[in-house]
């Protein structure tokens, strides 16, 4: 079997060794620039621009401490955590309702609505910022957690609906029907029978959207304010100090940034993969 090419996971020892080497090399190559950022964060500040670059050095936590104690960095981190987690959870809840409806009842125009939802991603953010800015000023939502949470909920809905619809499609309608026959109420069916079976989808939607919201910059910058700025804004507004890029600061924030996300990816990896199979729906657009 090893001699013919195929897409089955390989069992052949030689192939496996070669592939392991190739996979690890690739992973390390892709990770190198990030590793460089982390290394810079751990270097003494005055050696960052040294050429030849310092590869061996005594690591210091000073840059990380400085970055966290600089101005509002810590509260920006906390803000990011607050608005991203609340908004994504809210989005997943309403998306589950919508996805259930799309999947089970197929209301008129389902395909079109799904397409419209995805269209939120179409336009460069800069195009939408101005209407939002004016809207938020009128509604007095600027620089409020409520405003940001509403915004990021919308921001997270399309992808969540798409993922969850796929997963719910994959749950047999027999569950619903049996439930109905035994006189169960609809909420019971949805939350007690169907929901537990789409757990992977829920986690995948959560992980994906957390990454997106956590990284979103422009809207946070324009719609937020000193009370509600998140960490990308905290980074962007403090890149230069005294006219010069503060590399240690950028590297430290970058490091603090990648750590929680890397942990999420490491521990929720299978959900990421399964989530992206959209419950293995195919050709269903």
């Amino acid at each position: 079997m090893s001699r013919s090419l195929n897409f089955k996971p390989s069992n052949d020892r030689a192939t496996k060794i070669t592939l392991t080497f190739a996979c690890w090399t690739t992973a390390i190559l892709f990770f190198l620039p990030i590793a460089w950022i982390i290394a810079t964060a751990l270097k003494p500040k005055n050696t960052v621009l040294d050429i030849p670059p310092k590869v061996l050095f005594v690591p210091t936590l000073q840059n990380l401490i400085d970055a966290l104690s600089f101005s509002n960095t810590l509260s920006y981190f906390i803000n990011s955590i607050i608005y991203s987690s609340i908004a994504v959870l809210l989005a997943i809840l309403v998306s589950f309702l919508a996805a259930y409806s799309f999947s089970r009842f197929k209301p008129a125009g389902t395909d079109f609505l799904m397409f419209l939802l995805l269209s939120t991603r179409f336009v460069p953010a800069a195009a939408f910022v101005i209407p939002f800015f004016q809207l938020f000023n009128i509604l007095k939502l600027k620089d409020s957690f409520l405003g940001l949470i509403i915004f990021y909920t919308m921001f997270s809905i399309p992808f969540s609906v798409w993922i969850l619809k796929g997963f719910i499609d994959g749950v047999s309608t027999k569950f619903d029907e049996t439930g109905l026959v035994y006189g169960a109420k609809r909420p019971h069916i949805m939350f007690k029978l169907v929901l537990p079976q789409v757990r992977s989808g829920l986690v995948a939607a959560f992980v994906f959207n957390i990454i997106f919201v956590w990284n979103e910059f422009l809207f946070n910058f324009q719609l937020g304010g000193l009370k509600t700025y998140g960490i990308p804004v905290g980074l962007f507004t403090s890149i230069t100090k005294g006219g010069q890029v503060d590399w240690s600061f950028v590297a430290s924030i970058g490091t603090l940034y990648v750590l929680p996300l890397a942990l999420v990816i490491y521990f929720f990896q299978r959900y990421l993969l399964v989530g992206l199979t959209f419950g293995t729906v195919r050709g269903e657009v």
Binding site: N46, L49, T240, G242, G243, Q244, V245
Partner: peptide
């Protein structure tokens, strides 16, 4: 502005045409 500061303060340039208000940052260890 920043590139000039880096270049000059890392000892890589003999001179730099620069805003005088960043003069304080035009030196390093």
């Amino acid at each position: 502005i920043g590139d000039m500061i880096d270049l000059f303060t890392q000892g890589k340039a003999f001179s730099a045409w620069q805003w005088l208000a960043v003069g304080k940052f035009m030196s390093s260890d």
